[in-house]
Structures are given as structure tokens and as C-alpha cells.
């Protein structure tokens, strides 16, 4: 059955006509052009589709779009604070080499953000828990864990500017890394 819903995604309001059985993931990807959330399993196992719904972590592949009536959805595309200011987790992922193929990265970031919002200086155990539902086949997780651990260091840093971050090398970056230890 087709129904109309309204929801906000990354701060933008949408009125959509959807089928009852469509998942939020398919609606985001195929209908809204937001392909940041990935489909790694479509069955709630890999975490690649993680998004936030009303501030809480959710798997978009297990969420029906119809359930999102009136909700505020945030995807990885909405994680940066502005086009010129990354979220500290994003900067940290870039800096520590926490992304390889990158297919798990959006989900990892959203899972990490749920933790960061509660506790920006988490323990390793808390990090393992927070990303326990996110599979990465490339990194062995070490750099992901490290990036989450040290993300807070990037708060208010010049390196939240994507351009500065990509050009960061040598002393400045090393200094930051030092600070974070």
C-alpha cells in the first residue's frame, strides 16, 4: 500500500509517497539520493546502514520508512557540522587511517557518534561495545578504535577544516597525535 509520510533527513523536510514495506535504507538511497548509508547485508548484521533516528542509533535496513513518520533522521551525509567543518570523528578517522575501502565507514561513524554524544572520552571496552554491530573486513579495527578513542582531540581544532586536514602533515599532525596520547 502506498502512503504519504513526512520526515526530516539531515535537517531537510521531505514529504514522500512510499510503499508500506520499503525500508528506510532503500528510501534514503534510491529515492533521496543519500547513498552514504550502505547495504552490506540488508538483514541487520553488518552495521553498514547505521543512521540516527531522533538521535538514537538505528539500522536503516531493518527500519521501515513508514515508521519514520515525523522523525528526524541523520545519515553520514549529515554528520559534518558544515561543509567547512567536519565532525571530530570524521577528522579522526581520516587522520588515523581508520578507513580503507570505506564501505563500513559511514556505519562505523554513526555508531561511534552515538557513543561520542554520550561519552567523548570512552574506554576501549565502551568502543568495542559501540561498534560491536559493525563489521569491517579491511582494517582489523585497530585504527577505527584508535580514531574513536582520540576523536575528542579534534574538537575545536583547525584540522576540522577538510582542506587543512588533507594538507596536514609533519609537525602539526604529530603534535596533535602526541597531545592525544
Amino acid at each position: 500500500m502506498i502512503r504519504g509520510i513526512s520526515l526530516r533527513v539531515n535537517g531537510v523536510a521531505y514529504n514522500l509517497h512510499i510503499q508500506d514495506h520499503w525500508t528506510l535504507l532503500d528510501v534514503l538511497r534510491a529515492h533521496l539520493g543519500l547513498t552514504g548509508a550502505k547495504k552490506g547485508c540488508d538483514s541487520g548484521v553488518c552495521g553498514a546502514c547505521s543512521v540516527h533516528i531522533d538521535g538514537g542509533l538505528a539500522l536503516a535496513c531493518l527500519t521501515l520508512a513508514a515508521e519514520c513518520e515525523g522523525c528526524e533522521v541523520t545519515t553520514v551525509e549529515g554528520l559534518a557540522r558544515s561543509p567547512h567543518e567536519l565532525h571530530p570523528l570524521q577528522a579522526s578517522f581520516v587522520f588515523y587511517g581508520a578507513t580503507q575501502c570505506g564501505i563500513c565507514t559511514p556505519g562505523m561513524l554513526m555508531a561511534a557518534k552515538a557513543l561520542y554524544d554520550r561519552d567523548p572520552r570512552p574506554t576501549r571496552e565502551a568502543i568495542h561495545d559501540a561498534v560491536g554491530g559493525n563489521i569491517c573486513r579491511c582494517t582489523g579495527y585497530a585504527k577505527i578504535v584508535r580514531a574513536i578513542e582520540h576523536a575528542h582531540v579534534f574538537e575545536a581544532s583547525r584540522l576540522l577544516d577538510p582542506k587543512a586536514l588533507m594538507q596536514a602533515q609533519g609537525e602539526e599532525a604529530e603534535l596533535l597525535a602526541e597531545e592525544s596520547r
Binding site: 543519500l34 552514504g36 548509508a37 567536519l86 578517522f93 570505506g102
Partner: peptide
């Protein structure tokens, strides 16, 4: 010998990186 950030990292952390299934 430098620990440089990957040149595709920014795209990957912002959701901009485009994979085959992202093509519509």
C-alpha cells in the same frame, strides 16, 4: 615515509565516495 592521510579519506568519511551500487 610520511603518515599522510589517504587521498580518498575525506570522501569516505562524508559519504561522498561512490561505489557501484550507489550509482542510479
Amino acid at each position: 615515509r610520511k603518515r599522510l592521510p589517504r587521498n580518498d579519506a575525506l570522501q569516505k568519511v562524508t559519504g561522498d565516495a561512490q561505489y557501484a551500487d550507489d550509482i542510479y
